[in-house]
């Protein structure tokens, strides 16, 4: 397994959000974390990304406990794109993306070498920001910024990409473009991906597996077809749904928000 958790618990100060969780990610797999607001998806992603330290249990990256590896060693294998980025003033897109090479550079290397430059150019091309590479990041639109930060993560040449709601600031077209790009990277480069996604239909369409989180625990995990059932959705989100199968995958329609009228299996009382 590329990434694995064992009895993982964690959260903020004395308030555990994730409790006793087992999870694994295979090479080349796309796993999406879905769940209601406050269920612990982003906290889980931070624990997996070594941004938060576990209160109990362990996260293993390439079979080695992540907390025993240096931040630089982790960053060489895994990139993390937080939900909200700090927009740096006075940096161009190229300068921003170049920072993605930091984990691969010794401290005395100040400028990009040929390999770094190739990775930066490739990342900028992949997110289609070539024409904007010398623009200030602060002058970009929300969608362009998101793509610039994705390029920063890609420039790290990671094996695993962790993305916390990457489609938040994007319109429908850019949402699809971004996820198609990730799918291509997933297929062509064997990039393993974990995303937190609010949009269940996008999770169903692009993920190999879905992990449904409720109150810091796994409510269901498996293929989209196995996880996105009326019963699971009612239990986790408290919604009544209609699910149909289309050419691009499952489509989930939220019909009503009436948890009081449903039992915990999603069936009418």
């Amino acid at each position: 397994m590329l990434l694995q958790t064992h009895h993982l618990s964690g959260g903020y100060q004395n308030h555990p959000v994730i409790s006793d969780l087992f999870l694994s990610l295979k090479p080349g797999e796309w796993l999406s974390l879905v769940g209601a607001n406050g269920s612990g998806k982003s906290t889980l992603l931070k624990l997996l990304g070594n941004v938060l330290s576990p209160q109990q249990g362990v996260v293993r990256l390439d079979g080695v406990a992540i907390h025993t590896q240096s931040a630089q060693a982790v960053a060489q294998k895994m990139a993390f794109l937080p939900q909200q980025q700090t927009i740096p003033g006075g940096l161009t897109v190229q300068q921003l993306v170049s920072l993605g090479r930091s984990p691969h550079q010794p401290w005395w290397q100040w400028e990009l070498n040929a390999e770094d430059q190739h990775s930066v150019d490739l990342a900028i091309t992949q997110v289609r920001l070539t024409s904007l590479r010398h623009r200030w990041v602060e002058d970009l639109s929300g969608g362009e910024r998101q793509r610039a930060f994705l390029a920063l993560a890609l420039a790290q040449n990671p094996k695993i990409l962790l993305l916390d709601e990457p489609t938040t600031f994007l319109d429908v077209r850019y949402q699809l473009e971004l996820l198609e790009l990730l799918k291509a990277l997933n297929h062509d480069r064997g990039l393993s991906i974990i995303t937190v996604l609010h949009e269940i239909n996008l999770a169903a369409r692009y993920s190999d597996r879905i992990c449904m989180i409720k109150a810091g625990e796994i409510a269901a995990m498996g293929t989209p077809e196995a996880v996105l059932t009326q019963s699971n959705l009612a239990h986790t989100f408290g919604i009544q749904t209609l699910i149909t199968k289309t050419a691009v995958g499952l489509m989930v329609y939220a019909i009503a928000s009436c948890p009081s009228e449903l039992d915990h299996h999603g069936a009418p009382r």
Partner: peptide, 23 residues
């Protein structure tokens, strides 16, 4: 000697850490 670390900190502490900075 800390110029590169300062550049990473422009992105905030979370992102700096995920880019390999021992905060």
């Amino acid at each position: 000697s800390q110029s590169k670390s300062l550049n990473l900190l422009l992105l905030g502490e979370t992102q700096a850490r995920t880019l390999g900075l021992t905060l």
